[in-house]
Design a protein around this nucleic acid. Sequence first.
DNA 1: GAGAGTGTTGTAAC
DNA 2: GGTTACAACACTCT
Length: 287
Amino acid sequence: MPELPEVETVRRDLVRHIVGKTITGLVLSQTKVVRGKRDVFEQALISHRITSVDRIGKLLILSVDGTYQKLLVHLKMTGQLIYRANGTVIAGGHSLTKQSLDDLPNKHTRAVVHFADGGRLFFNDMRLFAYIEFVSPERMEQVRAGYGVEPGTAGFTKQAFATVFHKRTTSVKAILLNQSLIAGVGNIYADEACFRAGIRPMRRANQLTEKEIGLLYRAVDDVIKLGIEKRGTTFNHFVDGDGNSGGFLPFLKVYGRTGKPCKRCHAIIKKTVCAGRGTHYCSKCQK
DNA sequence: GAGAGTGTTGTAAC
DNA sequence: GGTTACAACACTCT
């Protein structure tokens, strides 16, 4: 689930609450989420301090003092990072109700990081797709190079965005979801951006006019910015750092609104499969 | 109760 | 190489 705005929301919460703190313990209850050797993890983390939390697309990057290696955290569909200090939930994730958040660790807790001040960081993941991994500086650069232009960064220019669409025969939706071309956009924001631009997600990329590409560029930038501002959205039981739902839900125009009237023209919102994903659109507003 | 669907992405096959 | 289909897994919804 977590797309760029949700991961950015978690990142900001982690910056506020774990940067500068020293790790005193690591408990792994599910080794599958850890890529690499367990003792390497413990050695690199325990007695060391978190120095920064960064992000590329949907990937979180934690820096730890005493090593040049970076700790990558990818939440995939259902991963969560929840910080709790003094019995209070501070940083959030996805698909937990307030009630179950009060009861951590729970059955989906895969790892717990303990800090010197008594705080704990819970790594939860229902479907076991998420992972954490230490990577060398060389590998880090490889990973970084694998990501395309990212909304909200200096590299996200109209020119760079347009280039991605030229000469590609696949759907607009597949382009938006392809992290190596455009970083951070997932299924929800892809549908929402297409709606805002008035473009059907199943259109062929190389058949968009320059004007349409311009509209889509602006739409992607706007929808991601608004998503971050509203601290993300989630379909089920998303909670942010304060245990509240992400604020973007009321702003969704098409995603999850199958069969409901379009908020702009009142035509019925349709759903199909495009690029292998559930895809929502208004057949009247989007051409 | 069975089967389809779910926000991601790496891999294999065409 | 570009593009598409699917598996990884556990849960919810129909």
